[in-house]
Design a protein around this nucleic acid. Structure first.
Lengths: 90, 90
DNA sequence: CCATTATTTAGATAGTTAGTTAATTAAGCA
DNA sequence: TGCTTAATTAACTAACTATCTAAATAATGG
């Protein structure tokens, strides 16, 4: 849960997830969308991978990234629980 | 959305929210649950307040904090959207 | 009033994060 | 084989974060 929220904290990483929601993309394609160096993007992708929010597979020189949503269940459940009980109380 | 995810990133702050989910608590009561100084707790509470995840009201010497859940709608919607489209693709 | 209690503000600091450039790895191709 | 392209790793650094102690603010109770 810690890695997940850590990954979601950064706007660049959230934008990457939104992009991957539409279609799988290579590291290069993702990088094109941001005004920062390739290593920076690589850093963000690595962090997302550690949080299990994306997976990657290599084909030739390219590395394609895909969104992985299963780990989001945890955070979703946590948030829903917070909201539910929050309503009950007041 | 940035402030929200920033606030949720820290485990101490998430724990505070979980505590406030059960009942309203004063700063002191919250502080008792953590092995850190009162100013540190105050810092976290301030951050949560800025993210609009908690509200506070003063009565006498005490300041009571309450969970505020409305701002969670945004993050919830964002996560759900990510999961929905993520499923559609594969 | 004065001492005590609850909380916050101020100032300092160690550790983390997000970015950079340079170097490395690995695949494709003429 | 050697050059080019895609991506990552390494080394560095500015800015940010979470903590601390000390000081300030403000309400309570004698």
């Amino acid at each position: 849960m810690n890695l997940l929220f850590k990954a979601l904290r950064d706007p660049t990483r959230r934008r990457i997830l939104e992009m991957l929601k539409e279609r799988d993309l290579t590291a290069g394609q993702i990088g094109e969308a941001f005004p920062m160096s390739a290593p920076s993007i690589s850093y963000h992708l690595d962090l997302l991978r550690h949080a299990q929010l994306v997976s990657s597979r290599k084909h030739g020189q390219f590395v394609t990234y895909s969104l992985e949503t299963t780990v989001l269940d945890d955070s979703l459940g946590w948030l829903l629980d917070l909201m539910k009980k929050g309503k009950k109380q007041k």
